[in-house]
Design a protein around this nucleic acid. Structure first.
Length: 217
DNA sequence: GCGACAG
DNA sequence: ATCTTGTCGC
């Protein structure tokens, strides 16, 4: 927690934002049911066509338990390894989890953004902190996610009549721009294409590793 | 003190 | 996160 408090001042919550977003990366981690095995994936998509440009997946093992508020210490190490395996650095990171919508305003998206220096966004499937009103039913509508009287994120409807996602700034851009990107990345499904691709990649890798281990014995 | 709690 | 069982809709 002290480390998060120390790094928190390094977060840029306004930024000019990434100049030109060409390569957008989705990051996610999958865990083995039993054992501490995990697979971390970073999938880079063309921001315009949303087609996959590159994938980087690493197998590893959980070295930190899941503790609400300290989530980055569990997933960040493996995600950084996967990022290092990329041929070209992405222009934007879309993380599975929260950014500023965190008890100390330093969720996984902030941590990854500060660590890499790459603009980042946090997209959570459920709320972690804060209060909010339900956003309107239309795609694109949103409401403020408030914590201690401060707007720490947005509850954004990416598909009509579908449960909204929780968007918060990670690093290097503002909330409005973050929501704009998330919406552009979610033309058809609730979750951004980046998140969906990363989720599929790490799960596939974990399954492949299990099958290989099974064959090998 | 008790319950909640990203993934 | 992961599992389970069933339902709804394209």
């Amino acid at each position: 927690m002290a480390l998060q408090d120390r790094l928190r001042p390094l977060v840029d919550t306004t930024g000019p934002g990434p100049r030109a977003v060409r390569r957008v990366a989705g990051l996610d981690v999958a865990y083995a049911e039993d054992s501490d095995r995990l697979a971390a994936a970073v999938v880079v998509l063309d921001a315009d066509t949303l087609t996959v440009l590159e994938r980087s997946v690493v197998l590893g093992r959980a070295r930190f338990p899941y503790v609400p508020g300290l989530f980055a210490f569990r997933e960040l190490p493996s995600l950084v390894e996967a990022l290092d395996g990329l041929g070209t650095a992405p222009d934007l990171l879309v993380c599975d989890g929260q950014g500023l919508a965190h008890p100390r305003r330093f969720g996984l998206a902030c941590h990854l953004g500060v660590h890499t220096g790459i603009p980042s966004i946090g997209v959570g499937k459920t709320a972690f902190v804060g209060t909010f009103d339900a956003p309107g039913p239309a795609r694109g509508e949103s409401s403020d996610l408030v914590l201690d009287g401060e707007v720490v994120g947005a509850v954004l409807r990416t598909q009509r009549d579908v449960k909204p996602v929780f968007v918060s700034v990670g690093h290097g851009l503002d909330l409005a721009e973050a929501c704009r990107h998330v919406l552009a990345l979610s033309p058809r499904f609730r979750l951004p294409e980046t998140t969906r691709q990363a989720d599929g990649a790490c799960r596939a890798a974990l399954a492949a590793a299990a099958a290989e281990a099974r064959t090998t014995g």
